[in-house]
């Protein structure tokens, strides 16, 4: 049993910089994200063949069909599981590194 085990570390922390990472590391520069990060969906319309496998596996009903036999994504419902990107036979769907998806316009959250 000891008393005041943390005294040394608490005082030492005074001399060091805080470990908090700011959201903007520099003005206009975001925190970096790793390579496999799952962010906002990026959709390559040309590569899509309209197999609609993504709709069958999407757990939260993000994906709907469009008139031209392609798909559209409603990001506001997305849970970023990347199942659609995994199932896509032509790699038309990819999850990008964009994580700032808060917006006041609903249209911004629809990827076509």
């Amino acid at each position: 049993m000891k008393l005041g085990n943390m005294l040394r570390d608490a005082l030492r922390a005074l001399l060091h910089k805080p470990v908090t990472v700011r959201y903007l590391t520099r003005a206009g520069e975001m925190v970096s994200v790793p390579e496999r990060y799952r962010g906002k969906i990026v959709y390559d319309k040309e590569a899509c063949i309209g197999c609609l496998l993504c709709i069958r596996t999407c757990p939260s009903g993000v994906i709907t069909t469009t008139e031209e036999k392609k798909v559209s994504f409603n990001i506001s419902r997305c849970v970023f599981c990347a199942q659609c990107a995994e199932i896509c036979p032509t790699d038309a769907i990819r999850l990008g590194s964009d994580f700032e998806i808060v917006t006041s316009e609903k249209e911004d959250l629809i990827v076509q």
Partner: peptide, 21 residues
């Protein structure tokens, strides 16, 4: 977790018949 699977909390590592990453 974020580096290995791409997400911090809901890593969705498992899939039917194996793992995803």
């Amino acid at each position: 977790f974020e580096e290995i699977t791409g997400n911090r909390i809901h890593h969705s590592m498992n899939t039917l018949g194996g793992v995803r990453w």
